[in-house]
Simulated scan of single mutants.
Amino acid sequence: MNSKRVNTTATARLKQDYMRIMKDPVPYVRALPLPSNILEWHYIVRGPEKSPYEGGIYHGKLVFPRQFPFKPPSIYMITPNGRFKCNTRLCLSISDFHPDTWNPAWSVSTILTGLLSFMLEKDPTLGSIETSDYTKRQLAAQSGSFNLSDSVFCDLFPDVAEEIKEEQQRRAEELRQSTNHGAIGQRSHSNDGQNPADNENQGLIGSALANIFVIVGLAAFAYTVKYVLKSIVE
Rank of each mutant, 00 (worst) to 15 (best):
T9R: 01
D17L: 06
P124R: 02
G144V: 00
V214E: 15
R66H: 12
F118W: 07
G82R: 04
R187S: 11
C154E: 13
D133F: 10
P27Y: 02
P48N: 12
S190T: 04
D24N: 09
D133M: 04
Q16R: 05
S190P: 02
I75A: 00
I212V: 10
P33F: 05
E121F: 06
Y227S: 08
L115I: 11
N7S: 10
V108E: 11
D159T: 11
P65S: 13
P52R: 03
S93P: 06
M77T: 09
T179S: 14
S188K: 07
K4T: 14
I184S: 14
R30S: 13
D133L: 03
Y43N: 01
C86I: 11
Q202K: 13
A161E: 04
F64V: 12
I94C: 13
N201D: 11
A222H: 07
H181M: 13
H98G: 02
K165A: 08
K50W: 00
L126W: 11
T110V: 04
L175E: 15
F118A: 02
L115H: 07
S145G: 08
A140L: 03
Y58W: 12
T131Y: 04
S107T: 15
S143E: 08
P27V: 00
P104H: 02
Y18R: 10
I44M: 04
H59I: 06
E200L: 10
F118Q: 04
S151K: 08
T88R: 10
L32V: 03
A172N: 13
D155V: 07
L116V: 14
R13I: 08
Y18A: 09
E163C: 10
N87I: 00
R187Q: 09
F70V: 08
F153S: 02
T110I: 06
L218V: 15
P33H: 03
S151A: 14
G203A: 05
N87G: 01
S188A: 02
R46E: 01
G185Q: 15
P35G: 04
T125V: 03
P33S: 06
F84K: 09
W106M: 07
T135H: 07
V45I: 15
E234I: 08
G185P: 01
P65C: 09
P25A: 12
